[in-house]
Amino acid sequence: MSSGTDGRQAELRENLQKARDRIGAACRAAGRAEDSVTLVAITKTFPIEDVRTLAALGVTDVGENREQELKAKAPDTSDLTWHFVGQLQSNKARSVVRLAQVVHSVDRKSLVSALSKAAVAEQKTMRCLLQVSLAEYGSAEAATGTSRGGVTPADVPELAAAVAEADGLELGGVMAVAPLGADPDEAFAALRAVSSRLRSEHAGAGWISAGMTGDLDAAIRQGATHVRLGRALLGTRPPLG
């Protein structure tokens, strides 16, 4: 084994321990059990070797936001739970359903239909999280009219009903990205309120996927059950090929 490989493994081990320590501290500060939050390692642009190293260190949940990378990595690491976290085109639904177990970015009925058709064809159940737009809480996004994507909070009940009624799909909860310029506590508190209303109609939809490297502490304070970490674990991303 090369010294370069040894060095990368040591780096990932150290980064993972720091991330786990940070999650644990945030849980304790919020009065939550440390095992109430699942770490999802986002391996965008990083090689399959990094995925295998993280798995050997005990990581069980891994996420990708591009279908091409999911296809390149998931077949060789089928013992992991794969999460698709990026914007998903309907024509890529079959591929994602075949390879992943969770989709975090369900934001429209046409995608629900595509995922349901694919799940039935693959004879599996796909867990779906509704991506909620929190754009109104981000001053930068409000000023520019941009958005990180997602369905408005007002439209969540209708989309949730579509997922709950679709064959092959399981409504798992909600996901959001804190918008640019936002107070993450304020934004994630809004997401928590959306989640609470959702669970009043769909008791099993308790997942809250929120928080990344820069704002995971706020997300955990506001009830996140899953945090999505890339840079904190893997370092600065190499450019897309």
Rank of each mutant, 00 (worst) to 15 (best):
E11T: 13
E11C: 09
L16S: 04
K18F: 10
R20I: 03
D21R: 13
D21Q: 15
I23M: 12
A33D: 15
D35P: 00
V37Y: 01
L39I: 10
V40K: 00
V40G: 00
V40A: 06
A41P: 02
T45P: 02
F46W: 05
D50H: 09
A55S: 12
A55P: 01
T60Q: 15
T60R: 15
D61G: 04
G63V: 07
N65P: 09
R66S: 05
K73F: 05
P75F: 05
D76A: 13
T77R: 08
Q87F: 06
L88P: 00
S90F: 01
N91D: 08
R94K: 15
R94A: 15
S95H: 08
S95D: 13
R98K: 14
L99P: 00
L99V: 07
Q101E: 14
V102H: 07
R108K: 13
K109F: 05
K109I: 12
L111G: 02
A114M: 09
A118I: 02
A118V: 05
A119L: 11
M126E: 06
L130Y: 03
S133D: 11
L134E: 03
L134W: 03
E136V: 10
S139N: 14
S139D: 15
A142H: 06
G145A: 12
G145P: 08
T146G: 12
R148V: 13
G150V: 08
V151T: 14
T152P: 02
A154F: 08
E158A: 15
A160H: 02
A160S: 13
A161C: 11
A161I: 07
A162E: 10
E165L: 11
L169K: 06
L171Q: 00
G172E: 00
G173M: 07
V174H: 01
M175R: 03
A176T: 07
V177C: 01
A178I: 02
P184W: 01
D185Q: 10
A189Y: 02
V194W: 02
V194T: 10
S195W: 00
R197Y: 05
S200H: 14
A203F: 10
G206N: 13
G206K: 11
G214L: 07
L216I: 04
L216H: 05
L216N: 00
D217M: 06
Q222Y: 06
G223V: 07
G223I: 05
H226Q: 11
R228C: 03
L229F: 06
G230V: 03
G230E: 02
R231E: 10
L234K: 01
T236Q: 14
R237E: 14
